[in-house]
Amino acid sequence: MDEYKIIIKDSLPEGRYVKEQENHPPLLQTKEELIYFLIRNKAYPYSSKTGKIFFRRLKKAEDENMNFEGIIKNGAVEKLGLQTEEDCRFLREKIKEELSKKREYKPTIKDWPEEERPREMLMEQGAENLSPAKLLAIILRTGDGVKRISAEDLARNMMDCFGNFRNLDSASFSELCSVDGIGMAKAAQIKAALEIGKRFLRENTKIGRKIKSVEDVVNYYKPYLRDLKKEVFKVMLLDGRNKLINDITISEGSLTASVVHPREVIKEAIKESAAAVIFVHNHPSGEPKPSEEDIEITNRLVQACNLVGIRVLDHVIIGGDGYMSFVDGGLIKE
């Protein structure tokens, strides 16, 4: 389809609406006139499953008193050259673009065609088929009315700035609020939504569930530990059947190392009547390979636990998207 050249004029050209006789709809002679008419009426073209071209008009259009249906029936489809849904989609985008340029118009998602609104698309197509920006727009709910930015435009700005949901999750409140249109309320909405996703991943390994494999451990901790900027050492406390009693943080260190004292581990394990433990910590560098210090402290912890009859089932290091198991690596004997 040929590209439309749209020129928005403050006033209509003289003789733009030609009436054959009173009460008849005005005849729009050119493609430019028809496009201008559609913009004023916030009307969007669509193609049905049978190939029929039709228009949907939004509320609060400027030309409310004009005979909209009559004008459309006077050869509008032919003059606009609309034949396929691709033609319609192209013109819809042009109409939205021109509307967003008008000073008196503040673009909001409510002014979009229903089929292109994020919430309606989710209900119609399923959440899995929506882009990251559209999903984020649903979380944000509203855009920036002062700067005339819709929720989806705001979401796109967020994704352009941070790249993906993982970076959004690791960003601080101040970093999120550095994006125009994002305040503390919207930053909190984003953080809450991401936390729901992380807790969902943890539900299969919640308190009382049996830890059956290293994958259970990784799935439980990875969403929380992989992007931390400091090293954190945690312990999973298990009963005699390897069911999770509790998980505790033993230490939080600098960017390179955490300080772990065997007595702290033993104290927590005895307090919770744990029969076994699994050590877990992260490497902010993203490299899960254990350092000499990791191996040394693990050996000290294993020896201390053996003295009080607590089994050490594994030590798992999480680094970025990877992980390393001391048992799988032969560094702890089962």
Score class of each variant (00 low, 15 high):
106 K>Q: 08
132 P>H: 08
168 L>Q: 02
171 A>V: 06
74 N>Q: 15
36 Y>C: 01
45 P>C: 09
49 K>M: 12
35 I>L: 10
69 E>I: 07
166 R>G: 06
142 T>Y: 07
168 L>A: 09
66 M>S: 12
156 R>M: 10
81 G>E: 01
126 G>A: 05
102 K>H: 07
140 L>M: 04
92 R>G: 01
166 R>L: 07
31 K>S: 12
134 K>D: 13
100 S>P: 01
99 L>F: 04
48 S>F: 04
94 K>R: 10
155 A>K: 04
65 N>F: 14
123 M>T: 09
143 G>C: 06
169 D>E: 11
50 T>S: 15
82 L>Q: 13
149 I>Y: 09
153 D>V: 02
131 S>Q: 11
120 E>K: 07
148 R>M: 05
115 E>P: 03
29 Q>Y: 04
113 P>H: 04
134 K>L: 01
85 E>L: 00
36 Y>G: 13
155 A>V: 04
99 L>P: 00
45 P>W: 04
102 K>Y: 11
82 L>E: 08
153 D>W: 10
172 S>P: 06
113 P>K: 01
154 L>M: 07
46 Y>P: 05
71 I>D: 06
146 V>A: 12
151 A>L: 04
45 P>F: 06
152 E>V: 08
146 V>L: 07
116 E>G: 02
66 M>P: 03
60 K>Q: 12
62 E>D: 15
52 K>L: 04
46 Y>N: 15
